[in-house]
Design a protein around this nucleic acid. Structure first.
Length: 800
RNA sequence: GGGAGUUUAGCUCAGCUGGUUCAGAGCAUCUGCCUUACAAGCAGAGGGUCACUGGUUCGAAACCAGUAACUCCCA
């Protein structure tokens, strides 16, 4: 925004910058809220809050003071990831490591000849005649910051160097040669230059050996006076120049190509500089322990569970949290420096002054102008981790109605990449400040990727605009599309075609509504649809249990799919077709009433996925009658624990198979759906086909359904379970082809029977397998045998 | 370098404690239909050596070991 207006941050005061930042926040924060509203997020929009709001900021400051008093916040020199371009410390997680082609410089350091040193006869010539050791480094510009050379004490090549000193080339500063097993003997030359100020490992090594820390870099990545040479040059320019200088001095042994990992700043893409700097830290170990326990003992559930391992690893190896940031946007750290460099922590400048004067007794007390507040602000997560409490003013007013009601909450939905930054720390803060975890379940969504598996990003331009998608497919369509490709815990490969599927589904619901709404009721008509109604009732109750089960396991895309199939297949494709009156014919009262009630239930199940269309249809007075004020789909109750007639469900599955078989015959025989067919059934099972006659004749366009005791010769036949069906066709049946078909089926059954028999005659199977498994195998056997007999009969009949 | 995870149909994924939920779903594909709710649709069909190699078992997509490829976290 500033760039667009041609404003540079350098020209602004802190106050001015913050004004712009707020302006930006109002604009873009507003856009995000609008997108959420458009997507149908059901929130209390009158009570939005922001971590920089006054009350929430106050909580941040109070927390800082609280933790400081506890001794958990301290100031320390630490190696941080310094972004020389942004001039700020960034967290480890904001550093992106990339493999980069670099050069490995081999540099000769003179080993100090004590004799020569004594006589101070160090000249280029004397150096040349002295012993050398060679080190390998990718960063020759840092040699001026070297504090030692380290070798492995077991390295036989360098026994003669023990206790000696070396000279840094170009600046001829003397540094000790130290021994540490940390050095890998077979990497590089086996001699390691130790540069505590500019490398994390070297820093630790330096601490161990009490080496001085010489920082030769400025905040912007240029060399400072400590470097003695190339002062003011940028680190990368200095690298090239020093290589030349070393070459000229005869100190450069060789240069090799080398691949290594280099850290880049996520924000500015600048190469990260390990830098010692004064930062504020928050101790983590004591807070991490209870936070880990909540998850390990199941008080907080992570979904999916696979994240527990990662969580545990992080919490067990937790490092102190660097909470200071060299930025303006954020809560300014409540530390006030005195002229002598000491500081006090206080909520306001006045309190700080009071404290300072209490602390130090001098003849002339400090004045308010003597105090200077810390410029740094806290890390953004230092406000976010308080969110579950601060959002309800739980710090200022720990017993207010809101927080008592909303804390702890049930579910937190968030992205796995901030499991540690945010989730873990919220758990810590929850425990520390309320003695209770802030939530029970953490649902970790996938990262949205594009079809090719790439992360959505601005630079790739592969992130779709939600508002555009909504424009194209409708908010419900987009929601369904997103959920269709969101299996729990996996990344989601987003593709617009899912939204298209969502839109088509919404369209389907709309059309079903149109159909039902168009029906006229004739109260004189009898209800012929009892079976269909009972069937769908059972099917709905069964599906509801399934859907609910999916929800409790946070399998959202599966809950959606179960709903999708219930609505599209069971309701639209089967039920509505079963009861649909002929064109412009009326429907009976009872069927109509039951269907409307089914439709209402359908809307309730659909609502979480498609809030807009369902609420819209719900309020159609014509179909559902006028509704009371607060009678909305969003709060409607689902009819749980409805009865499920399992036998009926099974019977209708058979009926559906019969219908499908007939349709299949039409398809293969090219018979128009308009042409009614005759159907004869020779039932061998217990299914009462006359009971289901209406459904079959309607869905398969059957003119008459006859129950017969004998085969019908010369008719097309098929089997469903063990029942035989016959359709006489106008054209004469080709007996050879028919025999061929039956033989093929027989062949398959024989093979199947053979494998079943093999199991049953296997002694070890019979003695080891569970009885119910054996029973199932036996049933397979008798069923297959029965079918084979029917096929044989059919074949025999054909031959006659 | 250390740790974790993934691999099932063209795509995205289910598949629990080994056996009728066992090879599944949706989409895509193919065939036939403008059948008065819906062509953004209807009806039907075809797709897989469950990454590979061994092992355990009466029985393995599932359990074990090894191999390969990919992903993530940490150094």
């Amino acid at each position: 925004m500033l760039k667009e207006r041609g404003i540079s941050k350098k020209d602004l005061s802190r106050k001015e910058f913050l004004d712009y930042a707020w302006e930006w926040k109002e604009k873009y924060g507003g856009i995000i809220l609008e997108q959420l509203k458009k997507l149908g997020a059901s929130c209390d929009w009158d009570r939005t809050r922001f971590t920089m709001d006054e009350e929430l900021s106050e909580a941040v400051i109070d927390t800082f003071i609280h933790l400081y008093k506890k001794g958990w916040i301290y100031r320390g020199v630490r190696m941080v990831n310094w972004d020389p371009q942004g001039k700020t410390a960034v967290s480890d997680e904001e550093v992106i490591r990339k493999e980069v082609n670099q050069k490995l410089y081999y540099i000769r350091y003179a080993v100090v000849n004590s004799e020569l040193v004594k006589t101070k006869e160090i000249t280029p010539h004397s150096l040349l005649t002295t012993n050398y050791l060679t080190i390998a480094t990718t960063r020759p510009e840092t040699i001026m910051a070297d504090a030692a050379i380290c070798i492995n004490p077991n390295d036989e090549r360098y026994f003669h160097l023990h206790g000696k000193k070396a000279l840094i080339p170009l600046i001829n500063r003397e540094i000790p040669i130290i021994l540490d097993e940390y050095v890998t003997m077979d990497f590089g030359t086996g001699c390691l230059k130790v540069t505590p100020a500019h490398d994390l490992n070297d820093y630790e090594l330096g601490q161990k050996h009490l080496l001085p820390v010489i920082d030769i870099l400025n905040d912007d990545g240029t060399l400072n006076e400590n470097a003695q040479i190339l002062v003011g040059e940028d680190r990368f320019a200095a690298r090239k120049k020093i290589a030349v200088l070393l070459e000229e001095a005869g100190a450069l042994a060789k240069v090799e190509e080398y691949k290594s990992q280099v850290g880049f700043s996520e924000r500015t893409n600048a190469v990260i500089e390990p830098k010692l700097s004064m930062q504020w830290f928050c101790k983590m170990d004591e807070m991490a322990k209870p936070a880990l326990d909540y998850v390990l003992n199941g008080e907080i559930k992570l979904i999916p569970e696979k994240f527990i391992n990662t969580y545990r690893y992080w919490m067990e190896n937790v490092k102190d949290w660097c909470i200071s940031r060299q930025l303006w946007w954020g809560q300014q750290i409540p530390a006030y420096y005195l002229p002598n460099g000491a500081y006090v922590i206080a909520k306001t400048k006045e309190e700080a002054l009071e404290q300072a004067n209490k602390l130090i007794t001098t003849t002339s007390p400090f004045t308010i102008d003597d105090l200077k507040q810390e410029e740094d602000v806290v890390d953004t997560w230092f406000s976010s981790w308080l969110w579950p409490i601060s959002v309800f003013d739980g710090f200022k007013d720990p017993d207010n109605a809101d927080i008592n009601y909303y804390y702890p909450t049930n579910d937190l939905v968030t992205a796995p990449e901030i499991l540690f930054f945010w989730v873990a720390r919220m758990i810590m803060a929850g425990h520390e400040f309320r003695g209770q975890a802030p939530f029970k379940n953490v649902y970790l969504t996938g990262i949205v990727r594009d079809k090719l598996g790439r992360k959505m990003s601005k630079s790739l331009g592969n992130s779709p605009d939600p508002l555009e998608l909504i424009e194209k497919y409708g908010a419900d369509g987009v929601r369904v599309g997103m959920l269709l490709c969101s299996p729990a815990g996996n990344d989601l490969m987003f593709d617009e075609s899912y939204c298209e599927q969502g839109r088509n589904f919404a369209n389907k619901v709309w059309n079903a509504f149109r159909l039902v709404k168009g029906w006229e009721v004739d109260t004189n008509l009898p209800n012929n649809n009892q079976i269909a109604i009972e069937w769908f009732d059972s099917r709905f109750n069964q599906a509801l249990t399934e859907i609910e089960d999916n929800f409790t396991q946070y399998r959202l895309s599966e809950a959606l799919m179960a709903t999708y199939k219930l609505v599209w297949d069971d309701f639209c494709a089967w039920y509505l077709e079963m009861i649909k009156p002929a064109y412009q014919q009326p429907i009976d009262q009872e069927t109509y009433a039951r269907t409307i009630s089914f439709f209402e239930n359908i809307l309730k199940v659909l609502h979480p996925f498609m809030p807009f269309i369902t609420e819209e249809l719900w309020h159609d007075d014509e179909l559902f009658g006028a509704r009371a004020d607060k009678d909305c789909c969003i709060v409607a109750r689902l009819p749980y624990n409805g009865e499920v007639n399992t036998q009926l469900l099974l019977d209708v599955e058979i009926i559906k198979q019969v219908v499908t078989q007939i349709r299949n015959i039409r398809n293969t025989k090219q018979i128009s759906p308009k042409e009614a067919l005759q159907l004869s059934v020779k039932p061998n099972s217990s299914i009462n086909y006359s009971q289901h006659q209406l459904i079959i004749t309607k869905l398969a366009n059957i003119s008459e359904l006859n129950l017969v005791n004998d085969k019908v010769n010369g008719a097309m036949s098929f089997l469903v379970a063990t029942d035989e069906f016959f359709i006489p066709l106008n054209e004469s049946l080709d007996p050879l082809a028919e025999a061929e078909r039956l033989k093929k089926e027989k062949e398959y059954l024989n093979g199947f029977l053979k494998s079943v028999n093999a199991k049953l005659s296997n002694e070890r199977f019979m003695s080891n397998a569970k009885p119910e498994i054996i029973e199932i195998e036996l049933k397979k056997k008798t069923d297959a045998e029965a079918k084979l007999r029917i096929l044989d009969d059919g074949l025999a009949a054909l031959e006659n």
